[in-house]
Design a protein around this nucleic acid. Sequence first.
RNA 1: GCCGAGGUGGCGAAAUUGGGAAACGCACUAGCUUUAGGAGCUAGCGGGAGCAAUCCUUUGGGAGUUCAAAUCUCCCCCUCGGCACCA
Length: 1046
Amino acid sequence: MPKYDFSKIERKWQRIWRQKKIYEPNLKKAKKPFYNLMMFPYPSAEGLHVGNMYAFTGADIFGRYMRMKGYNVFEPIGLDGFGIHSENYALQIGVHPMKQAKISKKRFYKQLEMIGNGFAWDKRLETYDPEYYKWTQWIFVQMFKHGLAYRKKQAVNWCPSCKTVLADEQVLQKRQETRDKRQEVLVGACERCETPVVKKELEQWFFKITKYAEKLLKNLDKIDWSEKVKIAQRNWIGESEGALINFEIAGGVAPSYVLLHGFTGSPNANFFPWLKKELEKRGAKVFVPALPNTDNPSIPEQVEFVLKNAEFNENTVLLGHSLGSVVGLKVIEKLDHPIKRFVSAAGFLEPKFKDHSRPFEKSFDWKFDFERIKKNVRTIMILRDSSDDVVPEIQADKIQQAIGGEIIDFKAEDNHICGEVEPVVLKNCIGLIKVFTTRPDTLFGATYMVLGSEHSLVENLKSQITNYKQVADYVKKTKNKSEAERIEEGKEKTGVELKGIKAINPANNEEIPVWVADYVLSDVGAGAIMAVPAHDQRDYEFAKKFNLPLIPVIKPNITTSQVVRVGNAYEGRGVLINSGKFNGMDSEKAKWGIVEFVGGEKKTQYRLRDWLISRQRYWGPPMPVIFCENCKKLAESYKSYKSKRSYRSYNQGELENPGWIAVPGKDLPVKLPYVKDFRPKSKGESPLSSVKEFYETKCPKCGGKARRETDVSDTFLDSAWYYLRYPSIRSARAGTIPWDSTITKKWLPAGMYIGGAEHAVLHLLYVRFLAMALKDMGYLHFEEPFPKFRAHGLLISEGAKMSKSKGNVVNPDEYIKKFGADALRMYLMFLAPFEQGGDFRDAGILGITRFLERVWKLFHSRINTNIGTNNTNNIRAISGQISEHSRIVHRTIKKVTEDIENFRYNTAISALMILLNEMEKHPQLPITNYQLLLKLLAPFAPHLAEEIWQQLISASISQNQRKSAFESIHREPWPKYDLKLIKEETFMLIIQINGKVRDQIEVNKIITQKEAEALVFERERVKMYLNGKKPKKIIFVPSRLVNIVM
RNA sequence: GCCGAGGUGGCGAAAUUGGGAAACGCACUAGCUUUAGGAGCUAGCGGGAGCAAUCCUUUGGGAGUUCAAAUCUCCCCCUCGGCACCA
């Protein structure tokens, strides 16, 4: 018997498979395409990790199974070679990443071939290949052009010792053992040098993933993914349903108001009389001039009239309705000192109306000095009626783009904000604190308010805050707090009261204090909260610490029946819900009833943040944008409407980010230059920022002197679209876009995606987002790239996560050398369910080695000796025994098939072992059954199965019968099982007495209860236990058991 | 604190529409094979009692539902993973 020389066999078949291209489907012509995708590795270390192999093998078994089921399986592989992992590795070993990439590539592909997967080798890709990142940059440009990329200042984690920006994952978050074993808490420190991390503000690029928050969340219900990954995504997106509620600032009413009516209006029309009364009631001086020539107005004339008759000081609020808003803007432009606030109700900048033209359109030049206006007004509120059929919605945006301010969208009482009572208008004329709450039903229990440190009101109310210095000091301290301090302080709440300011609870009109505290985060909700100590643990802690009231004093004009959940605070717990009704509504209804009662607005809020794309690093694709001073001016002037012609050549991204110009497609890729010193720079800039030849360039728009962006993009962008590239590599039709649409339509979305659960929220969310965005741009025909995703478990070693410091990293190479890839593959899959992960221990692999040896031995000792001579006779001679033996074979087919489909590879392998045990015992083993065993084994041990299969073919089929083409076992049809053969005619009837097994008999499957009982009571053992007594009850479970209850 | 997964022999695990707990494998023990070994074959292998037939007991702990619970319900403990002052 020849020796089972796995090294030779494995190398041989790997070579032949590759030569014969049995894993390279014809991507254009395939009839039953199946895209079997697995997450590609980042080649950041010495080589492939056994954890990678675990994942790839598990995915490959599924692919091989699908191939045998008749699908044209496409199973590509590549390297996620860009990014911080690879760069850090290069830094660590002191080799330039460009050089290291070549070394890693060779090593990784060699290892990837050794594991015996059915990879489509012709379609490899590496993310650092300019041919690839050209398209990564192209995608960035598309995002930019479609307004999905923008620049924003944001604080980043900065390690002062390593002089580099750190990703959140690189900041120590948990109590960890430090390298020199001190048991210290290193929260908020750099993972490499353990220096406390500080915050540094940098301008960076973001992708608007938040725009897709709702879709990303909703689609989760439609896709078949590992449930835990879906849950992680749901939590990450973090939907919360709640309401925005405005709290009036007591004394937020300004001393003086000037209200300007619109075209054909008057001080007695619309909401003007009511508004005047409301404001005067609160002690304000209100001036509502009747503007001259209201039916055929001249704007300059009205402006002059207002300037002459109205008084403006720094506490004046100016409101303009419709044309009054235009007049108001002009008035502000002419002032020589600032006013407190400008409220634009249904205002506009251009005379473009939805209905008809108006006489004042032509007599005015529609030019404004926006810079001056901005200087002359401290806060701006832009009210937009969602049902306005006079002024287009876009006008509000235009005002905001020109002078800033806040847009308030609402449905006015009457069209074009012309109701006699318009509460939203009033609210915006007086000072307001807007809060977001998911519990509006606790509104009656709000006893104070808290603003986040960065809340704009802190500065805007400066003049009214009597302890401003104290407040400012606190705010400054909070902003400078490092991550470490913030977490360390943990539960101990801090804060400062804004003295001189009171807010009014709109539910009960009670005056409540306003605080600023860092437990309220400025970028969450509205950046301010109503504090309800009776219901919220955090508010309770804060209230206790600063002696704030825990429950409100209910004013007599609010009846207790209106109160929902005021709550009773009590010591220790702080939360006792006192539920009630509100105006006859209960619970859920009351919650929203209150929102309506106080004029709030229902709102769904998401926790998801926009995707920060910029990396101040070297090893990534340079971002394909160029900054041009000249174009900045042009793009900005677009906002002021000074030159309509020139802005037409700018795309949305260029207009939204003045000065930033996309690199045109023909100039892509923007190649990453070779930079000798690729280490991160100390200023929070990419190493490219010191390469003059790189950043000095010409503006693609105007040809003037310009500067390239020197940051590179996040690695997650590389991996967010790689699956689109694989099938189109070297396709002639991919040229203007990165993929061939015909092929993409055929192969995508992917049939199966397999990868680690550690990517649940980043990679797996980004891929989905990008697909949605590209679909909306018209480049793709689907929005979910992976309708089916399975997360494999984590492979640990000797009970612990593999890590270099623990020294328990397993290198697959030595195991492959020692035991063979087939043995290692099967051992990894046999450990535990694939989706659970497993613990790699040396000892167990021998069991698999024995199994494979026995499969080999069985062939050479029993099968091979029988074929060739009179094979067919042989089968006929033993046909009588086939059916009995076939039963277990068919049961195994069923078991293995179902187990593969459910990724229960461990039990599939166990079933194969049981089958082998049976076959060894069987005196005359039919060849056909052995062939079935081989086919079932093929996905798990592809080399051995192929070797024996080929030997079988050459031994049993005479030369002239043999087909000329190479017939791999991996293209054989997957065995089908015969249900009739599986069905048993008899079964072991279990006899229980009081639930305990006492006996068993083999009986026919179709036995009735009566027949069973008759048999059971004849049994000696049963008689012994009954001892003449009559049973209380007899339970009969068909084809299972009889339970006699005594 | 919140969310998720899990806890079964010496070890990895199997059994989940409630119906024989421990399949399959590792390790171990004994024997066989004139036997160099991480080789092969046979048998045994949760714990306790017994020469044995057999009996009792056992799925993190406690309670419950049921003829019957690893599986369902409630409470508690532990391990791992994720999120974390999200209003």
